[in-house]
Design a protein around this nucleic acid. Structure first.
Lengths: 248, 248
DNA sequence: CGACATGTTGAACCTCATCAACCGACGTGG
DNA sequence: CCACGTCGGTTGATGAGGTTCAACATGTCG
């Protein structure tokens, strides 16, 4: 593709890592050019709050790299992670002015920021974009409800196994490898122990204990604190209580 | 309004109990007439499954009266309610062919059914309708995440109090009474003890015990198994861990 | 090297699940 | 009309799973 004939802006988006998987996938070149004009990249360090539940958010964003956690907190400080965002997920709530949770960088981040007003105008113009946002929201709802089952009804061991199984599937999908049940899957934990605990509704200690249990049972191998390997996905799945479900 | 000039169909919808609060509120008379043509009422007895997670749903529905529970179940039978629908809520997932949970009548129901294909065609024609569905989905997502905090981080007492507080607020809104903190609120429980337990991630016994605890502490009064009274909403709210939150 | 953050392990405690008995309301059939 | 079974709900005794508190290990950065 000759770069000279394209405006810089489009070229930027055109080369974006998540171009074909994010909400942008719904847009053609012309639309993308408009989007490009209002977008800009931003780097955010671990731990920084991106959106607070106090002030209405003034922007939306695509996750380019890193992990975002959405959290809610009781008045006395107990915290629960209510959603995780990975590339190429979308951060923000179109057509809502209030934001009932915190968004925080669970790792160093790179995000692609769209000012709220301009983006909503664009969404108004392009039904395809709005439709895409709708679909994402449905996916988030499904994930949230799946997690409700986990939080309400699963044991600590199942919770941890379920979380690891989720990550393992993600990893298999991303690497496009066809682990036809027989090869070990290796991946990094995107969260600290504290965050894992907040995601699973457990304490740090319980998470740690369950990890060592899974390790001594040879269900997983801990390469280091943040990296691990699953020799047999099906075994992990069955502990997670996700029996029949295939890995793809 | 002279009824003679309107087609029967529109008249039906025009007089519907939930006309102005359901997704239909987004539609004008002409659109409503089209919707009316494809809609029909249906009564459903307590306990009947409306949608299964096995087969894709072939219809959508508005709840006219009664309560619908959305449930998920582990392979060994543990159950979790992941959503409750009251009038004028909307049942179904537009633009999705799979349905990852059960929908079941938690009480005797009356619903207004739309065949899937016809309704989706209508949603395609009327962006307003689609937009409304989107907003409903966002609300459901917020509710689900609020519930994740409850399931993951709250004690049995807080869970039960939170559930009752939710119902009390609903009741205040519905009756349009301005309970300015000082009047007792009375309402019916829309769920059995078993369903409450499945909603809160507890057992029947624990729910029962917490109810009697709240009763002996005079936070609530049990009129009978299904009816209760809250003399002081703020007191209930503070036990639920929802302090500052006003009732409206 | 020491300081601090992150993670692991151990022991005691506590909340909630489990198992079991009981209660009252309701419907059925003898 | 009363005996009986069933269903939904309550109450009690016991124990397990997970939290809490505390000490220790490991890793990282100045």
């Amino acid at each position: 593709m000759p770069t000279g004939v394209l405006p810089d802006a489009l070229q930027r988006c055109g080369q974006c890592l998540v171009r074909h998987r994010a909400v942008c996938a719904a847009m053609d070149d012309e639309q993308l050019a408009k989007l490009s004009k209002i977008a800009h990249r931003r780097k955010i360090p671990t731990g920084q709050v991106i959106m607070s539940d106090q002030e209405p958010a003034s922007f939306f964003a695509n996750i380019i790299s890193g992990t975002v956690k959405l959290t809610k907190t009781t008045s006395d400080g107990r915290q629960q992670i209510v959603g995780l965002l990975f590339p190429p997920d979308f951060l923000g709530r179109a057509f809502r002015h209030s934001n009932p949770y915190f968004a925080e960088a669970a790792s160093d981040l790179e995000i692609c920021v769209f000012p709220k007003d301009a983006f909503e105008r664009l969404a108004g113009e392009y039904p395809e974009l709005q439709h895409r946002l709708f679909e994402r929201t449905l996916d988030e709802l499904d994930a949230a409800r799946e997690w409700m089952l986990l939080l309400g009804r699963k044991t600590a061991e199942e919770k941890v196994a379920d979380f690891l199984y989720l990550l393992a599937r993600r990893s298999v999908l991303r690497t496009c490898a066809d682990h036809s049940q027989k090869e070990a899957v290796r991946f990094d934990l995107p969260l600290s122990r504290a965050d894992i605990a907040d995601y699973l509704g457990l304490t740090i200690e319980t998470v740690s204990r369950q990890l060592t249990r899974l390790k001594t049972a040879r269900t997983i191998r801990l390469i280091n604190n943040r990296t691990l390997e699953v020799p047999n996905l099906a075994a992990l799945a069955s502990i997670a209580g996700q029996d029949g479900l295939p890995a793809h």
